[in-house]
Amino acid sequence: MRELLLGLSLGLGAGVAPGALLGLVITASLRGGFRAGLGLACVPLLSDLPVVLLSVTAVGALPGALLRALSVLGGLYVVYLAVSSAREARTALPPEPGVTAPSSARELLRGVAVNMLNPHPWLFWIAVGAPIFATAWDRSPASALAFTGGFYLVLVGSKAALAALIGVGRHRLGARGYRVLLVGSALLLAATGLLLLVRGVTG
């Protein structure tokens, strides 16, 4: 029970924290509605498996240089996505009521790439997640699975809830409000990308 509560609380903090993936969820929800945003919200379920496996089996074995390189590459890619979103926002029009764009495999792949290049999941699992998982596993495998399941349930669920709110309300926006929100999500991406770059360069 303690491990489950710990996973839920850590998942909530990670789910609502500003970051590249959250920015992509917001952008996708504005453009394509809940379905598109939900696809991006579920990205950690697709991209985190190698992160978790490597972190749990080799805690501390990953060199710092690799994490810094991931930070630089991820920062550059996120800044590129931010610039692209900002350019598109200049002429973007809000979707018509009842119109929902299909979820894009390209957007999903973007989300997976961003998450894999983001050092934050790696750092979380190396510094926090893996030690908790190992301790819980020593107690019982069910405790370790409860921690992991609780963490991803809330991590994905909080982003999915945000996607639902935006997906429902996006039709009420005028052209100006729609563009302002798109620019806002682009700024969130840009700030995250620059932060990743600075951390990667300065170590």
Rank of each mutant, 00 (worst) to 15 (best):
S143R: 08
G149E: 05
Y77K: 06
G193H: 02
L93H: 10
L195T: 09
G15D: 01
T135E: 13
Y152G: 02
E88Y: 02
L165Q: 09
L40W: 01
L49N: 02
P44S: 06
L5G: 08
S55V: 12
G33L: 00
A41F: 13
L165Y: 12
L40E: 05
S71F: 03
G33I: 01
R2S: 12
L4I: 03
V56T: 07
R2I: 02
L6K: 03
L195D: 12
S143Y: 03
G129M: 14
G193C: 07
L40Y: 02
A130S: 11
L30A: 11
A136M: 10
S143F: 04
R139H: 10
A14Q: 07
L30H: 05
V43C: 07
L62D: 14
L46K: 13
L45V: 14
G174W: 13
T135V: 09
W137L: 13
V183I: 13
L8A: 09
V156S: 06
T100A: 11
V72C: 07
A86D: 13
L123R: 14
G193D: 03
L189I: 07
A160I: 05
A161L: 15
A69S: 14
V198G: 08
M116Q: 11
S47K: 05
E107W: 10
P141H: 14
T202K: 05
L4E: 10
M1F: 04
F34N: 00
A175G: 12
A113F: 10
A161I: 15
S9W: 10
A89F: 14
R2D: 10
G74R: 03
P94F: 04
L153Q: 08
V154S: 02
V79L: 14
L181E: 01
F147T: 01
L76Q: 02
V52T: 05
G157H: 00
Y77I: 01
G11F: 07
G11T: 01
S185A: 15
A142E: 03
T135R: 15
L123F: 04
A127M: 14
G7H: 04
I132Q: 10
G33N: 05
A14M: 12
A101W: 02
S140D: 14
M116P: 00
E3I: 01
L21Q: 12
S103E: 03
L165R: 06
G23M: 07
G149C: 09
L187R: 07
G129R: 09
R90P: 04
A61N: 06
L165V: 10
G98H: 12
Y152N: 01
H120W: 15
R176E: 15
G11I: 07
G13W: 12
F133S: 00
T148P: 05
V72S: 04
R199K: 11
L188G: 06
L153G: 11
P44G: 10
V25A: 03
P18H: 08
L195K: 04
G149S: 04
Y178T: 04
G200F: 01
